[in-house]
C-alpha cells in the first residue's frame, strides 16, 4: 500500500463526510431492525425509540415464522440467487474470454449483440418468457427463475469482464499454451484468478436485484413451494391492513444472507485489488 502524508484537517473532513454518509445509509436499516422488535402500538407511537421492557415484543418474528414456510422461501431465494450468480459468472466469463482472446469473423458484432441486453429491459419480454416457460413446463420451478436472471445478468457481465480480460497479459496465456495447457485450463487457472476483482464486482451488482425481485417470482413461480422471500413477505402487506410487525421482522431477516454474500464478495474484491502483483 502506498502511504501518503495527509493534512490532518483534510483527513478529519474526509472522515466526517464518510461518517455522515454511513449514518444516512444505515439509518433506514437501523429503523427497520429496531422497530421489528417492538409492539405495533410502539412502532407508531414513537418509531425512533429503542425497544424497552414495555414495548419489546417478538410478535413480528412469531408471525413470520408461523405464517407460511418462511425458511422454505428463504431457501428458494438463496438457491435462485446463488444459482443465477454462478451461471452469470461462468457463462459471462467464458463469453468474455472468447471475445477478448480469439480473433474470428464477426467478433465485434458478436460483442455488440451480447451487450445489447444492457439497454433493453428483460421485463419487456415477460409475456414471451411466460409462454416459453409454459410450453417447456418450467412454470413454478426455480429453474425458470434462474434461467431468466442468468439471461438478464449476462450482458453487463460480459461487457465488464471482457474489458478486464483484455488486460490480462497475452504473454501469460501464450506461456500456458507453450507449456501445453488446454484453453480450458488457461481460462480457469490463469485468467479467472487474475480477474477475480471484476468477478466480485459483477456478482455484487447482480446479487441485490435478483434477491429483491418481485416481478418474475410473481409471474413465473408463485406456487407455495417456489415462493421467494420477497414474494412470501407480500402476504403481510394488504390493500387495507398491513402487518407492520411481520413486514419489519421479515425484512430484518432478509438482510442477513445478502450481507453475508456481500462480505464474501467484497473480501475477494479487496484481496484482488491489494495483491494485484502482475509484474
Amino acid at each position: 500500500m502506498q502511504r501518503v502524508k495527509h493534512n490532518p484537517l483534510n483527513l478529519a473532513l474526509a472522515h466526517l463526510a464518510l461518517i455522515i454518509y454511513t449514518i444516512i445509509a444505515l439509518f433506514p436499516v437501523l429503523i427497520i431492525i429496531i422497530n421489528s422488535f417492538k409492539t405495533r402500538k410502539a412502532i407508531f407511537r414513537d418509531p425512533l425509540a429503542l425497544p424497552n421492557s414495555e414495548t419489546f415484543s417478538l410478535i413480528g418474528y412469531e408471525t413470520v415464522l408461523k405464517q407460511g414456510d418462511y425458511f422454505g422461501y428463504f431457501q428458494n431465494s438463496f438457491i435462485v440467487t446463488v444459482g443465477s450468480l454462478f451461471f452469470i459468472l461462468l457463462f459471462g466469463a467464458m463469453a468474455a474470454f472468447a471475445l477478448s482472446e480469439y480473433r474470428f469473423k464477426g467478433n465485434t458484432l458478436m460483442g455488440l449483440y451480447l451487450a445489447l441486453g444492457i439497454m433493453i429491459p428483460i421485463r419487456l419480454g415477460t409475456v414471451a418468457i411466460l409462454q416459453f416457460m409454459v410450453a417447456t413446463g418450467l412454470v413454478n420451478t426455480l429453474t425458470a427463475l434462474i434461467l431468466v436472471y442468468t439471461a438478464s445478468g449476462l450482458p453487463i457481465a460480459i461487457f465488464i469482464l471482457s474489458e478486464f480480460m483484455r488486460q490480462v497479459s497475452a504473454d501469460l496465456k501464450d506461456a500456458g499454451r507453450i507449456d501445453g495447457l488446454s484453453e480450458y485450463r488457461i481460462f480457469f487457472q490463469l485468467v479467472l484468478p487474475l480477474v477475480r476483482p471484476a468477478l466480485a464486482t459483477v456478482a455484487v451488482f447482480n446479487m441485490i436485484p435478483i434477491w429483491n425481485d418481485l416481478w418474475f417470482p410473481l409471474i413465473l413461480a408463485n406456487s407455495e413451494e417456489t415462493k421467494t422471500l420477497t414474494l412470501g413477505s407480500q402476504v403481510f402487506i394488504g390493500q387495507f391492513v398491513t402487518d407492520w410487525n411481520a413486514v419489519l421482522s421479515g425484512l430484518s431477516m432478509a438482510i442477513l444472507p445478502v450481507m453475508i454474500l456481500y462480505i464474501i464478495f467484497s473480501k475477494q474484491l479487496i484481496r484482488g485489488i491489494t495483491s494485484g502483483a502482475v509484474k
Binding site: 504473454d171 501469460l172 501464450d174 506461456a175 500456458g176 507453450i178 501445453g180 484468478p193 502482475v278
Partner: peptide, 20 residues
Amino acid sequence: LPPSKRGIAMVFQTYALYPH
C-alpha cells in the same frame, strides 16, 4: 502442431510467470 508439441521453449519479454 500446437506449440507444446513442437519441441520448443519460449522466454517472453514480460517473463509471463504464473503468478499463483
